[in-house]
Computed example of a mutant assay.
Amino acid sequence: MQPNLIFQAVVSKLEQFQPLSKHLQDALLPLLSELRVPKGQILIRSGERSSRLWFLYEGFAREISHDEASERTTWFFSPNDFLFAYPSFFSQLPAFRDIEIISDSILVELSFRNLILMRRDFEELVGLVDVARDYCEMERARFVSMRDALSAQDRYDRYYADHKQLFNFAKHKDIANLLGIKADGLRRYNH
């Protein structure tokens, strides 16, 4: 993959929130690192402080919560998503969920330190980060609202329509877990 295409994907995602000046783009490029991450790797574990923000260029990941003796999938990340220990990356508190890569993936990485330095030098980045973070939180709130309001069949249908490719990589029991559907009953919702 060409670094220019990957960098352009990051810029395109950020410009969904607000336009970026050429000066900011030029300063951002040398601070980004491309990573190839194999399936099964944990990016961050619960209890660790996250020092990195990632952009998922290619692949899929899941967020995992540990409740007493059980593990629960709380979110899936798809291409063009930002991955961060929610919400602890921005507060620099220990993460309370793991992030696991579930398919061989290409990520773009930015350190928290470089993000803070850039926020100091580029006032436009302050608002951009806030808008992007709010958007991610709004997506989560919208998902919870959908999950609470719809029947199991409707939850499955809507999620499948929006995330068809994910079903090729994620374990169906993890998707069922996220949707609040019994894992052994997920097959009945398939079309």
Rank of each mutant, 00 (worst) to 15 (best):
H163G: 05
R147Q: 15
L178D: 07
L56G: 06
L5C: 06
S111R: 00
E15P: 05
S46G: 15
F7P: 10
Y160E: 14
Q41D: 10
R120Q: 07
A27I: 07
M1H: 07
P3W: 10
Y57R: 01
E109M: 06
H23N: 12
F76N: 10
F112H: 04
L35Y: 08
F122I: 13
V37G: 01
F76C: 12
L5A: 12
N168W: 05
R187P: 01
D134S: 12
A85K: 01
Q18A: 08
I181C: 08
A170N: 06
D184L: 03
R155F: 02
S50D: 15
E71I: 12
A176E: 02
I116Y: 04
P79G: 07
Q92F: 07
E34W: 03
I106C: 11
G59P: 02
Y189F: 15
E63F: 04
S103M: 03
K22A: 11
E34Y: 04
L128D: 04
P94C: 02
E48I: 03
I116R: 10
L83A: 01
F60V: 03
L166M: 07
G127E: 09
L35W: 09
A183L: 05
N4I: 08
D98Q: 01
Q92N: 10
A61C: 02
R187Q: 14
S105D: 13
G40M: 07
E123W: 08
D121R: 13
Y159M: 08
I101V: 11
P38F: 01
R158Q: 14
V126Q: 13
F89Q: 00
R147V: 08
N114I: 03
R72G: 04
E34G: 02
L56C: 09
I106R: 01
V37Y: 01
N168E: 14
D162E: 15
